[in-house]
């Protein structure tokens, strides 16, 4: 019988048994990895963004080494590709895409949204990024340069967006609540609502 014809539950059990027998990954490690994958969501990235908006030392660490910044907030990053953080500035906006597949910073943003993996998004993000942003209702102010970051290899990228002007004095938790998945991909920008 070929592997393709095998019962998937038996196949998984056999694979787990071999991984354990060879000392590659035990049941606890696999369970832990499943747990951290399930817990990953855009709320993790939003926590990082809100902290970077209020804590200059954390912001510096996040831009220098996204993986260490995430770990410092208790986000599990072990065994994952390095996390890079793209700093938006008043004159510079970033948009993330993976034209080759669907590379995505899952530890801090969770599973990629369906459109991120679509052929249409992947093609248009590099060829007509401003047209694409317009469809999201995102209009970059005059003078803002756009950098499209194609996540083609071993890094995973998230955007550190600009803090909205009308949020002075807000707590970290209140700030984190306005940061959306799309704000950290760059298709949208955070709104103080």
């Amino acid at each position: 019988m070929s592997v393709l014809a095998a019962d998937s539950v038996n196949l998984l059990a056999a694979l787990r048994a071999v991984l354990a027998a060879k000392g590659i990954a035990g049941p606890e490690e696999i369970a832990g990895q499943i747990r951290s994958t399930d817990e990953a969501s855009p709320a993790q990235g939003a926590r990082m963004v809100a902290k970077a908006w209020t804590d200059p030392a954390f912001r510096a660490l996040m831009l220098e080494d996204g993986t260490r910044a995430a770990e410092s907030l208790g986000i599990p990053m072990r065994g994952l590709p390095p996390l890079g953080v793209l700093e938006d500035r008043p004159e510079a906006h970033h948009l993330v895409v993976c034209t080759l597949c669907s590379c995505y910073p899952r530890a801090v943003l969770g599973y990629p949204p369906f459109w991120y993996k679509s052929a249409s998004y992947r093609a248009r993000a590099v060829r007509d990024p401003r047209g694409l942003l317009l469809e999201w209702g995102t209009v970059l102010p005059a003078g803002v340069k756009l950098t499209v970051v194609d996540s083609t290899a071993d890094y995973r990228w998230m955007v550190l967006p600009l803090r909205p002007a009308a949020t002075a004095g807000w707590s970290e938790a209140k700030l984190a609540a306005i940061v959306r998945e799309g704000d950290m991909i760059g298709v949208t920008i955070p709104l103080a609502s």
Partner: peptide, 25 residues
């Protein structure tokens, strides 16, 4: 592995001057 910046309209023949593509190569 390097981050390489390309001129976006230069590659596609359309787009806004000054926009860029940043690619891992």
């Amino acid at each position: 592995l390097y981050h390489v910046r390309f001129d976006q309209p230069g590659i596609w023949g359309e787009g806004a001057a000054g926009d860029a593509l940043l690619v891992e190569v």
